[in-house]
């Protein structure tokens, strides 16, 4: 067991300047950068398990959490990550106020830019919103989810979770992503990143929740979950929003659970010792059965949340390192 002092030394040893000014998509990062980032996140994960959890790597830096969509866990995760690194974290509640007053996203961005933050974490319902902001503000932008496009830190934390569960050879894993692929930024970010790692990625969904020409994403596509789950090492479940379950895309909740919900019976078709992941928040009894979600032998869901804070600390710290380096 390493002591507190050793861990922070480890962190300093692994610090590296982030290769880009912003983190907008999971494909922004080349393989070596991903490895370096996850190594750093690993160290932060160990660090987070200590009783004293604060560092001063981001002292004097301002991080703004700009969430146009409500999010408890992602916003909280970034907030904790920022605070543990010593940054001043400000949560901007923009959901209702400025949008209702007709302010454009760029106006909001200009206002924020004038406050001179160093890091801007943004979640917005519009695909491409983070990209748009990154062109208009002078600070680093981290995409915490843009519409149905990307959610790169989720994909990275999923990868970190996998690495810790399966060891460094994640590229040999077979991974099924199951659920509302069409509306999922988590799926898009994960497909790109996992494929770049060399994983075999499968997509499982009812036909109405598969994106157009999804067969060209380079993943095997299934509408039959039992077939799709055959021999996979990991099942990543996606959240299905309730408003999409009432006849719009699928006829009913119970029909969805019958065919695409994950329970122990369906999971039995996966490889022995297969693991289950979910980005949260879960709809228990809709896409995932509690017996699976809560089984510590198969569920990595709690690990994902823990990895989330560590991974985000790694992203923030390396972006800050980049700022130091370019000073």
């Amino acid at each position: 067991m390493t002591g507190p002092h050793d861990v922070s030394q480890e962190i300093h040893a692994r610090l590296f300047p982030f290769p880009r000014a912003h983190l907008l998509t999971s494909s922004d990062l080349a393989r070596p950068d991903v490895d370096a980032l996850l190594d750093l996140a690993d160290a932060f994960l160990d660090f987070g398990r200590q009783s004293a959890k604060s560092l001063d790597l981001l002292r004097g830096r301002t991080l703004i959490n700009l969430f146009f969509e409500n999010s408890t866990r992602t916003q909280g995760s970034f907030e904790i990550a920022g605070k543990r690194l010593g940054a001043d974290v400000i949560n901007m509640a923009v959901g209702a106020s400025s949008v209702a007053k007709g302010e454009t996203l760029i106006d909001t961005a200009a206002t924020l830019a004038s406050m001179r933050p160093d890091l801007l974490v943004v979640r917005h319902w519009g695909s491409g919103a983070a990209d748009l902001l990154s062109r208009k503000v002078g600070c680093s932008v981290i995409n915490a989810g843009d519409g149905q496009h990307e959610h790169p830190t989720q994909a990275l934390l999923d990868l970190l979770t996998l690495r810790r569960a399966f060891g460094p050879d994640v590229g040999s894993l077979k991974i099924a992503i199951c659920g509302d692929i069409q509306h999922s930024r988590v799926a898009r970010s994960n497909v790109g990143l996992l494929q770049a790692m060399g994983c075999e990625v499968r997509l499982i969904a009812p036909p109405t929740l598969l994106p157009g020409e999804v067969d060209r994403w380079g993943a095997k596509v299934f509408t039959d979950m039992v077939q799709g789950i055959q021999d996979v090492d990991v099942v990543m479940m996606l959240r299905l929003q309730r408003e999409r379950m009432n006849g719009g895309y699928v006829p009913s909740m119970r029909e969805y659970f019958r065919f695409w919900g994950l329970d122990a019976d369906k999971l039995a078709h996966a490889a022995p010792r297969a693991k289950v992941m979910h980005p949260g928040p879960m709809n228990r009894g809709v896409e995932i059965d509690s017996s699976v979600a809560d089984d510590p032998a198969v569920s990595l869901i709690a690990d994902q949340v823990e990895a989330g804070v560590a991974l985000r600390m790694a992203v923030l710290a390396s972006l800050s390192e980049r700022m130091e380096a370019s000073r």
Binding site: D146, H149, E150, G212, E213
Partner: peptide, 15 residues
Amino acid sequence: TGGELASRMGLPAAP
């Protein structure tokens, strides 16, 4: 326009 590009970009698309 519905297709690979729109689905990758996560944009609402029409066939």
